[in-house]
Structures are given as C-alpha cells and as structure tokens.
Computed example of a mutant assay.
Amino acid sequence: MTAPDAGYAIDVDDVTVRYGDVIALAHTTLRLRASTVCGLVGMNGSGKSTLFKTIMGLITPQSGGVRIDGLTPARARRGGTISYVPQSEDIDWSFPISVREVVMTGRYRHLGLTRRPRRRDHEAVDEALRRVELTEFADRQIGQLSGGQRKRAFVARGIAQGASILLLDEPFAGVDKRTEATIIALLRELADDGATVLVSTHDLQALPQLADQAVLLMRRVLVHDTPERVIAPDNLIRAFGLDPLDDAPVTGEGR
C-alpha cells in the first residue's frame, strides 16, 4: 500500500475482498477529495455494498487498505468523521421511537458521560431535521414515515453527527421524484459546505444532476470520470454486458 495522502477524504488503495473463493472487490482503488459528490454505479453483485462496508471498516480486506482523512476507518468511525446510510436500516419499525430520537442517536459521541442531550445537541438535531424537511414529523413514530421520509431521517442522523464524509447506499430506491430531488439538493448543499459524499444509485438519468464525478464498478473500478463520461454507452456495456474480471478466478458474484 502506498503512503496515505491526508489530502484525500477517502483513500481506497488496491483493495481486494474475498468471501471464501468469491471475489467481491479486486485491486480496487478510489480516491476522493473533500467537497465532492461521487456517484457509484454498477449492477447488482458489482461490489458496491462491499466497498461501502470496507470504507467503514466493517469488512477487513485481504489486501490493500483504506484511509479516511488520513485515519484508519475504525478511528474515523469512532471520531464521528464518517456516516453510513445503508440500503435498508436494520430497525424494528414498530419500536416506539420518534424521528427526533432517531436523529439524536447521531449525537451519541457528543453527549458526554451522562449521555444526556444538551442545548447544542437539540439545536443540531433541529437543524438536521430542517435540512431534510422533516421538522413537522419530528415527534412522529419512525415507522409511520414513508420509505423516502425514513431515508431522509437517517441522512439527518448523519448531519446531526457532524460527519464530514457520508456514504449512502441506494438512497433513491423506492422513493418518489420529489424525495429524490430533495435528497439530491441536500447532498449538493452538504458538498458545498465541505462534505465528501459517496452515493450508489441505479438512476443514471439523474446522475449528472447529483454528482460531480462518478465511478463505474464491476468488482474493481472500471471508470472514474465525469458522470457524462462514466455513463457513455461503451462504458455501460463494459459494466453491464461483459465481465471485466474474466481473467480472475471468480467463482460467484460480489456482494
């Protein structure tokens, strides 16, 4: 692995991840600087979720490494630098917890030994709810929200956390166009404020409005360029019509 570059917010260097004999990521390198929205595109099984979990430090690669603002993923996660919104939250939607309380969980590391929210914590949560347009739903039980509203609530949790790096796995899946437009505008605003956003999406049509740059993934990075160049027909054929790892010992799909 090359020496980490503190100038990169996300530095994924030559990472390989296997599940047994299955290659999920092969020699994958991805480097993003701050104030960037990067769209992550690839077919199911291309390794997008594995890449997110590796960046978060939830999966340890067999080779290569990851740095987040020059830190290990574990240290970045403990320090609240990075926030992850997975494709589906592992939560009991019937649990009696309000939207406000869900967002407040993003303040956990700020609460001190008493774990009691202070004025600045409530203010951070109120501001996060305002930014995702959920203020009027703050006291509603989380399971009463629509799918798109739930996703906005978990984006708000990352904002309240104060994370400078946000990972979002398919935040537009199952949401209406209004919610999609709201999330896109919010992510652009966060990037303008200095955040780094990596977001996976199947909505290629909206990619140029969403992202400054994009990555085409098929168990390794095929193209990292502007959205318009990434979704050019020749590149999409490479990702969706051919296996770019036909010279590697792949015995199943990535995850």
Rank of each mutant, 00 (worst) to 15 (best):
S63A: 14
I23C: 09
Q209M: 11
R219L: 10
D121R: 03
P117G: 05
N235F: 04
G42S: 12
F172T: 11
G70A: 08
V223Y: 00
I159H: 00
P86G: 11
A211K: 04
K151N: 05
V41E: 06
D14T: 13
G65M: 08
R100E: 08
D11C: 01
R109A: 06
D13G: 01
D243A: 10
R157M: 11
R100T: 10
R150S: 02
D90N: 15
L187W: 02
R115H: 09
D192M: 08
T36E: 15
D69Y: 03
G64T: 06
A3T: 05
Q62C: 13
D11H: 03
A206Y: 00
L204T: 10
L204V: 13
Q213C: 12
V223K: 07
V102D: 02
G47K: 07
V199N: 06
I237H: 14
L51K: 03
G162K: 00
D212E: 07
I10W: 00
A26L: 10
V197E: 04
K177R: 14
L210A: 06
A232T: 01
A128V: 12
L40N: 00
F240W: 13
L111H: 04
G174K: 00
E133T: 13
G47S: 12
D92C: 08
D225C: 00
V199Y: 02
D14I: 08
I55V: 09
